[in-house]
Design a protein around this nucleic acid. Sequence first.
DNA 1: CCTTCGCGTCGAACCGGTTCGACCTACTGA
DNA 2: TCAGTAGGTCGAACCGGTTCGACGCGAAGG
Lengths: 336, 336
Amino acid sequence: MNIGEIAKRAGVSRSTVSYALSGKRPVSTATARRINDVIDELGYRPNASARALAEGRTRTLSLVIPPAASRLTDAQLGFVASVVEAAATHDLDVLLSPSGGDHDRSFERIVTGRRVDGVILMEILLDDPRVARLERAGLPFVTIGHVEHPGVSWWVDVDYAALIRRCVHHLADLGHQDVVLINRSDELVAAGYGPSLRSSAGFVEAAGARGLTARTVCCADEPAAGLVCFEDIRRRWPEVTAAVTINEAALPGLQQALHRAHLDVPRDFSITGVIAGRLAEGFHPPLTAADVPAGEMARLAVDLLVEQIADPSATPRNALLEPAISLRSSTGARRR
Amino acid sequence: MNIGEIAKRAGVSRSTVSYALSGKRPVSTATARRINDVIDELGYRPNASARALAEGRTRTLSLVIPPAASRLTDAQLGFVASVVEAAATHDLDVLLSPSGGDHDRSFERIVTGRRVDGVILMEILLDDPRVARLERAGLPFVTIGHVEHPGVSWWVDVDYAALIRRCVHHLADLGHQDVVLINRSDELVAAGYGPSLRSSAGFVEAAGARGLTARTVCCADEPAAGLVCFEDIRRRWPEVTAAVTINEAALPGLQQALHRAHLDVPRDFSITGVIAGRLAEGFHPPLTAADVPAGEMARLAVDLLVEQIADPSATPRNALLEPAISLRSSTGARRR
DNA sequence: CCTTCGCGTCGAACCGGTTCGACCTACTGA
DNA sequence: TCAGTAGGTCGAACCGGTTCGACGCGAAGG
């Protein structure tokens, strides 16, 4: 069931079968039909490894997921699924690779072993060693989140600063004076995780512009931490009446803390932020928030990568998404 | 930077380099050192496609995720990450493939194109066409969930029937008389989704044994459906005081419905079931439930697959997991 | 001293595709 | 009539590894 077998049965040479399949040279209709009949009969399909070797490309791309993969957030999960789907429309397969920790062997195997045509890097850090590695290897890649100044690399990102600014303005319009930003984990922030830093910047900036008192806390990416974190906020700054969050994983704990403190949302306390739509709708009450457009980001990332693979010398392109804030029911006027 | 280049610089033949790398034939220590020096200097790594072609195996396995991948449940998500991690310990890469709907092209590409050495199938149906396809192709595979009688295929599963039985007994011990099972979606049940069917069977059986009145409902896999579903239950069977659920996605809606009905858990209503640990802990209050051991299942599945790849004619093995029920705080004595 | 054996190495074949150059056969236009 | 061109096909080389058979060589054994 290799191409030679097909050739023999169709009474032609191997190259003719190849051309019939790829259409790169004309083949007479009679021959083409004979070949196709044999192929259908035997259920033949070219061996992917052999084709990859000969063509010099694997028709595969790698999606590098964050180190702590065992607790991907909901938005990240949605993103993974969407990437697979988007890749499928280009007839590309997706290799899922862990990275960080002791998984660097996998990453190295992918990169040096020419296992894929391109890479999508999730959860990029401001100064990421993997980026340097890929550049050195000359392997096309697109990052989710951006590292440097626009225009020098390929990336897709959500404009966290702008979105958080909008959240703050929204809260200010409702009369809130004391607001808090619930950021991602300390470690992530310390490591230079872009969305965290940019959220923080946007938060402070907008609060300043509207004359609000702005507090910021970091919170580990897990439910239990959300609980502790919120109780901490209440204790330290009881005057705070609204929170902006980009920490999806902590939401359940936040919910629990609100309940425990007998706070009604949005009557006693308002919540908003940047949250996967599915999660925002699952909250009680549904969150007014900017939905992370995982599907669109995935599609864009794959498209950019495909473009870059086709022409590695092309000028880098990128996309900064600014999804609308969905008004649901977790924000309300400040009570005095 | 191919093996010939290394051979030239080390002053040996290509085969010697290959043997030095694989250790399949002895190489003098002096030669080995020269070769290794060159390799380190150039950062050489064998081309994965070429190796796959020559060896006849790709060192890659495929994880086939469910059709509606965009809304994988939490347990499934954890499973994906764990499979990648487990595969990494065997130096295997993981190809993520969608299946079902219009993604059958991807699946077919994987199978016929000899793109992988083995396949892990998630969310298996009682009579699954993909299973037949893989058997016909002679490609090793392990299913998550089982199809046939033990002993004729390779699989890993959670013993839903036993776990649900335990849940029912637990509720019966607490004095509950009228209980309901919140199952997965109609479509899934209709399609013959094993866990749903076995849960249902175990539920009815245990309820019968303890003389409880048992109701069963299906609920779409999304928060909104959970809300509707629970209100429906309250309307139709107001006497029900406890629920057993295997529907993770509907949990947020369930939570919302409980809140809206001013029901306190566990004082007014008890909840238990089979739920990913992370989700159970995120619920308010934390759910007493059997935690789906995604990590362990993933590790077992990969191990079984590796075993089967090594010896395709081995007697099929399988594993039926029965994780303990974690006592948290969502179940309590029935109030009268 | 001659055979035997194992070590270390090489060359060649092979895995299953793609692609290039060459060739033959009309058909076209000058 | 003949050069030029396009369609259709073939054989051979190539992609970058692995693996098999053979061979030279020094040590061990009879």
